[in-house]
Design a protein around this nucleic acid. Structure first.
Lengths: 253, 253
DNA sequence: GTGTAGTGCGTACGCCGTACCAACAACGTT
DNA sequence: AACGTTGTTGGTACGGCGTACGCACTACAC
């Protein structure tokens, strides 16, 4: 009796502390984060984290009810990185949204595994702050609630989708041999003649060089920016919003 | 000696068959697909698939070298669903891209787990066909190779990102109690006053109703379409492409 | 009928998350 | 200073996972 509500989110349960425990949730989360960043999300196991901390495995369960909760803490830590210091947020909605999106992109690219776990996690405090900040970026516009929501969701969708793809290219370069196998399979397929347009895209040069050219033609960040600006341009037109006036220092709207 | 190259992709290894095996890769993949669709990707285990097929677990390894390869087969099966019959592809790039994106969206929404596994998988034959078809959609434009590639990547990014988010809302309604806990946590946070803009978004009504209103204001598909059209409008302006002329039957460009 | 090699799969190993519960130690009380 | 309470630690064990290894079976060529 008087047990804690089983469905309560971890944010609503205070960290244990009446008798000075050996660890904190933050310590545990950041240990897990370090493992995920250096060895991939798959390397994050309760045994591994505990080992890293010099603790018994089951000790972690005194701070956290399940591994999913621990992942929530990791996600929330990451979301804290995407927050922009209030005084650095540009005044114009277009610039503000761009700044937020770019920062989000950079953070997620540093922790690409977060997208997988973020999916299941309901918004934690820092995710709410991110949303709040995004709304603040739109405060100067005259959009109604539904439009604001739709706009922010669309931008976030693009950011997440881009990271999903970009992260897979920037990955640990794979196996070398594996990569060769992939390229060679691609070439074999192209040779079948079933892919005339794709073949034309790689006109002349061999596929590997062409692929490298396309990849190096623009950095992942540049490609992200380009897509984002197209999206925001479409938004500005479709929602009747102003563009920032870049010719002078003034900020329209 | 004379063993198969370890790094060879599954597509390059022929299915076993000199002596009429009991199963086929297709059978195995579609069994796995059925499990994933009805019970989630986590329920897909080698033991489970084998059980479903009435086979010994290790039998699967005669058809497939690792579970990852099996997942590639699943992904490729899904990618086959997104292909549009050649004669149904609209002539104008804008309509064609919209059709491809919508179909992709619908397929991925039916198999939301695919996004997780798709990330690691190098493009299989059907993924290549999808790319080829996307290029075909742009055949009428005057974009160069780099621009085409960038455009398609951007659209795919948005589609994947949208599914990533939308799928999490349309999920199995969760726990009821769990959902209550999430809503209640949100309200508590709003009450702190740290989130004025978010609070304003839910003006008046209580948060749960407001949330429900925003969700039902537009179906996930409508919201996807809206974002996609904004993106494509931005693309059309930014890349100097024509819009389809909807007033008559003719197709510009 | 017999030999061979393609096919099926049982066993076992080392991972995983975590339920259960005994042991330990920090503190309030006396 | 001694004790009892209870917050904190973590050992053991269970049922899952992917899959390496290698033996058993059997379909077919001869």
């Amino acid at each position: 009796m008087a047990t804690v509500d089983d469905s309560a989110l971890i944010w609503t349960r205070p960290e244990p502390g009446t008798r000075r425990p050996k660890f904190t949730r933050d310590q545990i989360a950041s240990t897990a984060l370090a493992i995920a960043d250096t060895e991939g999300f798959a390397a994050v196991s309760m045994r591994r984290i505990a080992g890293e901390l010099g603790a018994g495995t089951m000790t972690l369960y005194y701070y956290v009810r399940t591994k999913d909760e621990l992942v929530m803490l990791m996600d929330d830590a990451i979301m804290s990185e995407v927050l922009i210091p209030a005084d650095e947020l540009p005044a114009h909605w277009y610039d503000a949204l761009t700044a937020i999106a770019e920062r989000t992109w950079q953070v997620l690219m540093r922790h690409p595994w977060a997208l997988h776990s973020l999916q299941r996690a309901p918004a934690g405090p820092n995710a709410m702050r991110h949303f709040e900040q995004s709304l603040a970026a739109l405060a100067g516009t005259e959009l109604d609630a539904t439009a604001k929501f739709a706009l922010l969701a669309t931008v976030d969708d693009y950011v997440h989708g881009n990271v999903l793809r970009a992260a897979e290219f920037g990955a640990p370069a794979e196996d070398e041999a594996r990569l060769d196998a992939v390229v060679q399979f691609g070439q074999t397929q192209l040779a079948t003649g079933e892919f005339p347009h794709t073949r034309a895209l790689f006109s002349g040069e061999n596929a590997q060089n062409a692929f490298a050219r396309i990849v190096r033609d623009a950095s992942p960040l540049d490609r992200f920016r380009h897509g984002l600006s197209m999206l925001l341009d479409g938004v500005a037109h479709g929602m009747n919003l102003s563009f920032p006036d870049r010719r002078r220092g003034r900020r329209a709207q």
